[in-house]
Amino acid sequence: MTKLEKLLSQYAAYHLDRKNILTHFIGIPLIVFAIICLTAKAGFVVAGFPVTLALLIIVVSVIYYLSLDVIFGVVMAAIFAIAYPYALIITEMSMMHWFTFSIATFVIGWVFQFIGHFYEKKKPAFMDDIVGLAVGPLFVLAELVFLIGLRKSLEERMLAEAKRLRSEMDQKSIKVVNAD
C-alpha cells in the first residue's frame, strides 16, 4: 500500500457516509480558502517579489502533495494557483472586512464539517491524527476524481482499507463501552 493509499484510507475511515463527504466538498474548500486569506496578509518582499505566509504554506503543501502523488499534486497546485489571487484581492479590503470575511468563511466551513460528522457519527479525523488537516483537501480532490469516474482502482483499494479500519475503530469503541 502506498503512502497516499494509507493516508486516504485512514481519512476515509472517518468519512464513509455520502452526506458527510458532500458536506466536505463545501467545508474543506471554505476552510482552506479562509486560511489562505488569513495568511496572505502577512509577508515580506524578496528581490521585489512579495512573499506571503499563504504563499509559503501553499508551496509546502504542494511539495507534500507532489511527494504523495504527482497527478494530485499538480491538480492541487492548479487549484491553489487559482485561489491565491482571489485571496490577495480579499487582503485589499479594509482590515475589518478582510478579517470578518476570512473568519466567517472559516467558521462556515467548520459548520459544514461538523454537520457532516453528525451524519457520520464519528469525530473528525484530525482529532486522532493532526495529519488529517493536510489530508482533508487531498481527500476532497480524490473524492471528486472518483466521482467523475477516474482512478477507480485507487478508490477501491482506499475504500476496502477504510472499511477495515472503520471496523477496527468500531470494535475498539464497543470494547470501551462494555468496559464501563
Results as ranks from 00 to 15, higher is better:
Met1Tyr: 00
Lys6Cys: 01
Ala12Glu: 12
Tyr14Asn: 05
Asp17Phe: 03
Arg18Ala: 11
Asn20Lys: 05
Asn20Trp: 04
Ile21Val: 14
Ile21Ser: 03
His24Asn: 00
Phe25Asn: 00
Pro29Gly: 04
Pro29Ala: 03
Pro29Leu: 05
Ile31Arg: 00
Ala34Thr: 02
Ile36Arg: 00
Thr39Ser: 12
Thr39Ala: 11
Thr39Trp: 11
Gly43Arg: 05
Phe44Lys: 04
Ala47Pro: 09
Phe49Ser: 11
Val51Asp: 02
Leu53Gln: 07
Ile58Gly: 04
Val59Pro: 07
Ser61Thr: 08
Ser67Val: 06
Ser67Trp: 11
Leu68Cys: 11
Val70Lys: 15
Val70Gly: 11
Phe72His: 13
Phe72Ile: 13
Gly73Ser: 07
Met76Cys: 09
Met76Ile: 12
Ala77Asn: 03
Ala78Asn: 14
Ala81His: 03
Ile82His: 03
Pro85Met: 01
Ala87Gln: 02
Ala87His: 01
Leu88Cys: 07
Ser94Pro: 07
Trp98Thr: 03
Phe101Val: 11
Phe101Gly: 08
Ser102Val: 08
Ile103Ala: 13
Ala104Arg: 09
Ala104Asp: 12
Phe106Pro: 01
Phe106Tyr: 10
Val107Leu: 10
Ile108Glu: 05
Gly109Lys: 00
Phe112Cys: 00
Phe118Asp: 14
Glu120Ala: 06
Lys121His: 10
Lys123Phe: 10
Lys123His: 14
Asp129Glu: 07
Asp129Ala: 02
Asp129Trp: 06
Ile130Trp: 12
Val131Gln: 15
Ala134Cys: 14
Leu138Gly: 12
Phe139Met: 03
Val140Trp: 12
Leu150Arg: 07
Arg151Tyr: 06
Lys152Thr: 09
Lys152Met: 06
Ser153Gln: 09
Ser153Val: 05
Met158Glu: 10
Ala160Arg: 08
Glu161Asn: 12
Ala162Glu: 02
Ala162Ile: 01
Lys163Asp: 02
Lys172Thr: 03
Ser173Met: 15
Ser173Pro: 13
Ile174Asp: 09
Ile174Ala: 14
Val176Gly: 07
Asn178Thr: 14
